[in-house]
Design a protein around this nucleic acid. Structure first.
Lengths: 160, 160
DNA sequence: ACGAATAGTACGAATTACGTAATATCTTGC
DNA sequence: GCAAGATATTACGTAATTCGTACTATTCGT
């Protein structure tokens, strides 16, 4: 498949690929950004504002707004760091943990749908492919600052 | 790789995966929605409002706004259909065609970065995988109306 | 201890999206 | 061949989201 076909395939199926939440329907009054933010925070256990802004690719002031809303909805709590009182630690509340679990269940259902359709060879190769893709994108000279790669589950993944 | 790891991988690398436009930097004053809209229209040669709204997954009134902006920017033209005067045909202008070419060049550069990192077996399997994934998502009972699949490059792709 | 750097928030403007109502044009049944 | 309903789209006001800039608080470096 040449790249052109691939692009057309993506364009024709954009809805299914990029808007699974239509049928994932996590009942929710959560925007896509808010959803990703919750997942990111759960991933880190606890996060600081600048990490969050960086990960979801928005300005600090935008991040403040997003966190404001999620705190208002009782999914998150803010707390000042003791060691550095400029820093604000963002954590999931019980309610937040619960909705993250619901979200992850939905995502897993979505991923299951995909994995079920693949045979063993494909699953095996897919793992390598995904890692390689991310590594390839990481190598792009234009990819920003070093901190991006900090703490990541991936700096440079070794394929077993 | 289990699904959990996959999800973490995606979360950790969200920026690279979902915001390539940071370094694709098609100079542009185009939002992501506008960019996709232009690609969709080029894909169809000419498109009507309801098709566009459906493809990019927004309401008709939102689509009107998006097209308004792109017409104002001279990338698109509006014309009433002769056969059915309710219908508005959206077409790319010369300027529009040009920017779409620029965008596609950028996307191809991005895709090249990915493909270059894969060996032959991986490329071969990847094609099948992508098709299977899309088919799997298409089969989901919850996926909306039949028209979605009309005119698609994919109803159900046969793997050669 | 003072100026520069860092972390975050406040605030107002701009952009984008959405819901509802309105307009214009077909289509269908009688 | 015309009224009633269906379809395609736009208008308009509102809500949600994002952004840039200025401001506050705290820490770091020398």
């Amino acid at each position: 498949m040449e790249q052109n076909k691939l692009l057309n395939l993506i364009l024709d199926n954009m809805k299914k690929i990029f808007f699974p939440e239509d049928w994932l329907e996590i009942d929710m009054k959560l925007s896509k950004t808010e959803l990703f933010t919750l997942l990111i925070i759960e991933r880190h256990g606890e996060a600081i504002m600048s990490q969050i802004a960086n990960k979801i690719n928005v300005s600090m002031s935008t991040a403040t707004g997003i966190i404001d809303r999620l705190v208002k909805k009782k999914y998150l709590s803010r707390a000042r760091s003791e060691s550095d009182r400029r820093i604000v630690l963002i954590r999931l509340t019980k309610k937040g943990k619960q909705i993250v679990n619901d979200i992850k269940d939905s995502i897993n259902y979505y991923l299951n749908t995909i994995f079920k359709s693949l045979n063993e060879e494909e699953v095996r190769v897919l793992s390598n492919i995904i890692v390689k893709i991310i590594n390839a994108l990481s190598e792009e000279k234009l990819v920003e600052n070093k901190e991006t790669r900090e703490k990541s589950s991936l700096k440079k993944i070794e394929i077993e």
